[in-house]
Amino acid sequence: MLSQAIGALQKEQATPLYLQLQKVLREAIAGELVKSDEAIPTERDLAEHFDVSRITVRKALEGLVSEGLLSRRRGAGTFVVGGRVEKSFSKLSSFSEDMQLRGRTPSSTWVSRTAGAVTPEEALSLGLSPGSQVYRFHRIRYADGISMALEYSTVPGFCLTSETVVQESLYEALGQAGFRPVRALQRLRAVAFTPEQAQALGVEAGQPGLFIERRSFLADGRTTEFTQSYYRGDAYDLVAELNDL
């Protein structure tokens, strides 16, 4: 058992028990007594093993979730967070390319792939005239089978022959059609996942995430992509290289 592997808490010490429990769990994670993406024992089991209240256990786990060491998955339990992914803002690349570059296997669950007339918001973002055709792609993105992000992409109709040509990588499909973007503008902000978003990603409602909006352009200035993504905050680090030029 985990408690046997890392010992008991020192109840005679002045340090609060929840902080002691956080410390031993943190050390267990660092020492790989509990592996990445592995579930830790339930609150009830931890309370019994360490002879503390479930309130103490819950407070300890909430702190480790806030630190990004643990993640709660709806209906599955509490898991050790896997290796975080660094996303560079200095290079224009797709989700699939990012994952493959890091030796991870990208995959998707399609929520929808549709064609239709552009909405006013899409027309403004893509620089299209009213009535223009667009393709919309909504999916859940995974790395090594672990949910990473919700993705909503809209592409002008002139960029693709059909919505079905996009299988795994949108940028691969755009490249094959001769419309891969060469530059992009991105903005991001912190968000808390709604119950619907959390359910799709298998995390707790209210868990922090990163919202990234991207508009990508061709060399001639036409917009070729408008994507809004919601990334898990416990799995992603965004990196930007700065200089004084």
Rank of each mutant, 00 (worst) to 15 (best):
A5M: 13
G7T: 11
G7W: 04
A8Q: 14
Q10E: 14
K11S: 13
A14P: 00
T15R: 15
T15E: 15
L21D: 03
V24W: 00
R26L: 07
A30L: 13
L33M: 10
L33K: 11
L33D: 02
E38R: 12
I40P: 00
P41S: 10
A47M: 08
H49P: 01
F50K: 02
D51V: 12
V52E: 08
R54K: 15
T56W: 02
R58Q: 14
L64I: 09
S66P: 01
E67G: 06
L69W: 07
V81T: 13
V81M: 08
V85H: 01
S88C: 08
S90L: 10
S90A: 14
E97T: 15
Q100G: 02
L101T: 11
P106I: 05
W110P: 03
V111C: 05
P130W: 07
Q133L: 12
R139H: 13
R139M: 03
G145D: 08
I146T: 12
A149P: 01
E151I: 08
F158A: 07
L160T: 00
S162Q: 10
S162E: 12
Q167C: 06
E168H: 07
A177K: 05
A177T: 04
V182W: 01
Q186V: 13
R187N: 12
F193W: 01
G202A: 10
L210E: 11
F211M: 15
I212W: 00
D220S: 09
R222H: 10
E225I: 04
F226K: 02
Q228E: 15
E241L: 13
E241S: 14
